[in-house]
Design a binder for these strands. Sequence first.
DNA 1: ACTAGTGTACTATTTATCTATTACACTAAG
DNA 2: CTTAGTGTAATAGATAAATAGTACACTAGT
Lengths: 126, 126
Amino acid sequence: MEFDAKTPIYYQIEQYINREIIIGHLRPGAQVPAVRQLAITLTVNVNTIQRALANLIGAGILVPERGKGNFVTTDQKVLGKMKQSMIEGEFKALYDHLAALELSPEEMTTAFAQYVQTQQGGERHE
Amino acid sequence: MEFDAKTPIYYQIEQYINREIIIGHLRPGAQVPAVRQLAITLTVNVNTIQRALANLIGAGILVPERGKGNFVTTDQKVLGKMKQSMIEGEFKALYDHLAALELSPEEMTTAFAQYVQTQQGGERHE
DNA sequence: ACTAGTGTACTATTTATCTATTACACTAAG
DNA sequence: CTTAGTGTAATAGATAAATAGTACACTAGT
């Protein structure tokens, strides 16, 4: 996996797992891959995985069972809040930065719409 | 100034100065505030300011003149590229994350438009 | 019991970031 | 020439993030 060098890896892993849950690759009640397996998959140290999972456990998103593994919570309230704050966070980051560039709300939406357009046709991956 | 704890301060200062240039608070040829002054204003160490400025100088956005100060370049080509990459970078971050959430392009634009709407009425700052 | 697969804990080491402090070099004004 | 204002360099120390490696604890299947 590719990481942004300017943000902590453990944090990026938290986001990644959250996304996997939102998408449905990890369903409520499902077991998260073993820490040692995740470490290999994400080419990262076990301790870094552990730190990310610890945060997710603290947030109630994952539920640990010693000797068995970590499992996605079945608490829909927790999952709903997580999804909400994930998306809101993404939007807020862009909104704040564009606001700092003194773009009007209309300019923001149209500019972003235009960008999405450019990504449509030109999705070349080499 | 407020900094995000999860990204290097020097990098956030680079972005901040870029935005000041884009907005027009710092015009081409204008002198950037003195490093010691910036350190006080941004409540940050001089070395951190220096590191940010060094990167901007390396990018050709700022031009240093020993004993006099740092000045915004008058090279419109450089400034144009900077502005372009700043905005593109913002858009790309949101686009990639929403794509990871498997949103369609239409959903992205409408969802962001809706978010901007919510920011319209509710801009309470207390 | 044994074993393989889980999570968990701990220490040590490296690297990047940030701070603090001091010193030096150049420019312009008096 | 002196001084105040600039940038610049260099050292030392503190903290956070990530790695490496080892060890321990619990669970389930044999």
